[in-house]
Nucleic acid binder design. Sequence first.
DNA 1: AGCAACAAAATTGGCGACAATATCGGTGCG
DNA 2: CGCACCGATATTGTCGCCAATTTTGTTGCT
Lengths: 240, 240
Amino acid sequence: MSTGGKGGARRAGAGQGENDTNGRDRPLVVGIREAILSGEFVPKQRLVEADLSERFAASRASVRAALLELTNEGLIERVRNRGARVRAVPLEEAIEISEVRMVIEGLCAAKAAERITEEDIKELKAIGESMRSAVSSGDVLGYSQLNQRLHRRIRMISGQHTASNVLERLRAQNVRHQFKLAMYPGRTTVSLPEHLAVIDAICAHDAEAAEQAARAHLRSVIQTLPEVDQDRSHGYRGTT
Amino acid sequence: MSTGGKGGARRAGAGQGENDTNGRDRPLVVGIREAILSGEFVPKQRLVEADLSERFAASRASVRAALLELTNEGLIERVRNRGARVRAVPLEEAIEISEVRMVIEGLCAAKAAERITEEDIKELKAIGESMRSAVSSGDVLGYSQLNQRLHRRIRMISGQHTASNVLERLRAQNVRHQFKLAMYPGRTTVSLPEHLAVIDAICAHDAEAAEQAARAHLRSVIQTLPEVDQDRSHGYRGTT
DNA sequence: AGCAACAAAATTGGCGACAATATCGGTGCG
DNA sequence: CGCACCGATATTGTCGCCAATTTTGTTGCT
């Protein structure tokens, strides 16, 4: 974990290690991002620079820089001279994002199937077993965490830095929908066999099957998204 | 297209002339980006804020903001307290980028095949014919422009806003490799039938065939990339 | 009473200056 | 003669201030 200053390393976005947010970022970016992802800042909420400046004990210029960065990450939305607000991802766009995720996760799964080692096979299968037991015991939260770990592990095994970066960004934009999806009753029962199929295909070094399984899983997600959607995501008048 | 969007209406006037990668950007971002994409700023070249400030007659803060934005677009690379420089995309990463492009362009092609109208069919076929004649007459530059127009048109027809954004960003990062690829002798002869296959599949409303054709085309690109690569792209010691 | 224009407040955008940090050159010592 | 320490320089990071623009509240007119 020693994220020390390895100067000569390639940029390639985040290293293969944990990129939960982005370790190289200043605390401001991380802080605001965490606030958005944790739900403290709700969609369409205005983000006034002065307020954030006070909230994080930093200057307004730093806040502005952080806001600009988060804008490019797709988490907040800025209009010239009209300020920044948390981006509300409507269902239609959440589906689009998931469709892009579908093909990229398929790519990663295929590449992972080609590159996976015996050691990683053990870990993937272990994750699969944990997921199975989590579903059995009804541990939805644990299953959700295992889900994220599985996807991240597959990305790592695939060795596709570019794909990982894109996926991470897309996932952050959809975190709210993903959360609602995870809480959808009976979702784990549908999700589990799909995940196991992905794991099996990757561990069997079957790239084609892995890609198809990953895409099938995301297709299932896309299909379920409209059911869990609550239309407050794209509400124009959020003043209640 | 823009379903009830509030802000997207004004963008409708985007003439086919300029490729405003992002019309909402301030001139600084556009200027620096153009300088990088046009090759004026070569990879690994240092971008000193003060110099850019003078070059574009703007304050350093604005330059910094633009640099931050371009960093997130993947065009430049920044190290804390050590400045920014034009990102040099090594062959390995160019391949990764093209692999991601492969699956996303496949997705767009499939979606375009489902959504295309008779009007768009005519235009796609017209582009195909133009490409054919461009290859016949050996007009490499014209073919390259038609190539970009075709891809852009397909993205537009697909209606995939997210995918288009990702593709545009990835394409910008690979613009140098793409250029060398376009100039590779005999490349057009290989590329043309692949493009025509994509066009035919899309116009035939065959989503599956369109995706496969698009992926085959990008696979061909990936296969050719190493041949056109000149190792100056990833030169570590660029101090001349 | 409704609407429009105006004014005041709020907020963002831009700018210059100062401090922190890395790089580079020089100098002294082993 | 080479290496390490040290200072000078260059560059970036941060901060506070002022102008431009938008939004909102008020007032006067129809």
